[in-house]
Computed example of a mutant assay.
Amino acid sequence: MPEQHGNTAARPPFFPPRFWMWMAGAVLIIVLDQLTKSYFDSNMAYAERWSVLPFFDFTLLYNPGAAFSFLADGQGWQRWLFTAIALGAVGLILQLLRRHPGQTLFCASLACILGGAIGNLIDRIMHGHVVDFLLFHWAGWHFPAFNVADIAITCGAALLILDEILRIRRERRRRAKPAA
Rank of each mutant, 00 (worst) to 15 (best):
Q4G: 00
H5F: 11
H5L: 07
G6N: 06
N7P: 00
T8N: 07
A10P: 00
R11M: 10
R11Y: 01
P13A: 12
P17S: 10
F19K: 02
F19L: 03
W22E: 00
A24S: 04
A26Q: 05
L28E: 05
L28D: 01
I30K: 08
D33C: 07
D33Y: 08
L35C: 10
K37Y: 09
K37W: 09
F40H: 12
F40W: 15
S42T: 13
N43P: 04
N43E: 13
N43G: 11
N43C: 08
A45S: 15
Y46F: 10
Y46C: 04
Y46E: 14
A47C: 08
E48I: 10
E48H: 11
R49K: 13
S51T: 12
V52H: 08
F55Y: 08
L60T: 11
L60V: 09
L60D: 12
N63D: 04
A66D: 07
A66Q: 08
A67E: 05
A67Q: 01
F70Y: 13
D73G: 13
D73K: 12
Q75C: 00
G76I: 04
W77A: 01
R79V: 07
L81D: 02
L81T: 04
L81K: 00
I85Q: 05
I85R: 02
I85Y: 03
A86Q: 02
L87R: 00
G88Y: 12
A89V: 15
G91Q: 04
L92Y: 05
I93W: 02
I93R: 04
L94S: 06
Q95V: 15
L97V: 00
L97I: 03
R98Y: 13
R99W: 12
R99A: 14
H100M: 15
H100T: 15
F106W: 10
F106D: 01
A111V: 10
A111Y: 14
I113T: 05
G115M: 12
G119H: 09
G119A: 13
L121F: 12
I122Y: 10
R124W: 12
M126S: 09
M126Y: 07
H129V: 11
H129K: 05
D132Q: 11
D132H: 12
D132C: 11
L135R: 14
L135H: 14
F136Q: 06
H137T: 09
W138C: 13
A139V: 07
W141S: 06
F143A: 08
F143N: 07
F143L: 14
F143S: 05
P144K: 14
A145F: 03
F146I: 12
N147A: 10
V148C: 12
V148E: 02
V148D: 03
A149Y: 08
A149W: 09
I151S: 04
A152G: 05
T154P: 01
T154E: 02
T154H: 03
G156Q: 09
G156F: 13
A157H: 00
A158T: 09
A158E: 07
L159K: 01
L159A: 13
D163S: 14
D163C: 14
I165V: 15
I165T: 06
E171W: 09
R173D: 13
R173K: 13
A176D: 14
A180T: 11
A180K: 05
A180C: 05
